[in-house]
Amino acid sequence: MTLFAYIVAALAEIAGCFAFWAWLRLDKSPLWLIPGVVALILFAWALTWIETSHAGRAYAAYGGVYITAAILWLWAVEGARPDRWDLIGGAVALAGTAIILFGPRSASA
């Protein structure tokens, strides 16, 4: 469920932010803001599906997922092929996500 929640959150956040980008930077209609706001609400809701006792930990771990999803968006939607630095950065970010999610915790953490 955690992976699913992070994937939904990443897609929703990037889509929502891109809607604002399209409106402000690509001269798209202000109507793009409607699905953008809906997507951002879905993003916030999806992060509540993460099984953790602390919101900050879910958000911190999500950062690596977001970075990787943004690199995929760059390639799939914007047509810009990621370079080796994009890929290395995404891998480092995912490593950080794994440390946050799977690192051993004390009973009080």
Rank of each mutant, 00 (worst) to 15 (best):
A95R: 02
A61F: 07
L24W: 12
R57V: 11
V8E: 01
T48V: 02
T97E: 05
A80S: 13
A107Y: 13
L24Q: 14
I71E: 05
V65G: 02
I14R: 00
A70W: 04
I7H: 05
P82C: 06
S53C: 01
W32L: 11
I7E: 06
E78F: 11
A98E: 10
A61E: 06
S106Y: 12
T68Y: 07
L42T: 14
I88H: 09
Y62F: 15
A93V: 02
A10K: 01
G64W: 10
P82R: 08
A46T: 00
A70P: 00
L42I: 15
P82G: 04
M1W: 11
G16R: 00
A15F: 10
A15H: 00
R25A: 13
L26G: 03
A76N: 09
A61V: 07
A58T: 06
T2F: 07
Y62S: 02
E51M: 06
I71H: 02
I71R: 04
V77M: 07
Y59Q: 12
T97P: 04
E51P: 09
W21I: 08
A10G: 09
L3S: 13
G89I: 00
H54L: 13
T52I: 08
L24V: 10
G90K: 02
A44S: 13
A98G: 05
H54K: 13
E51H: 10
S29A: 08
T52K: 10
A19C: 15
W23E: 11
A15I: 03
F18V: 05
L33I: 12
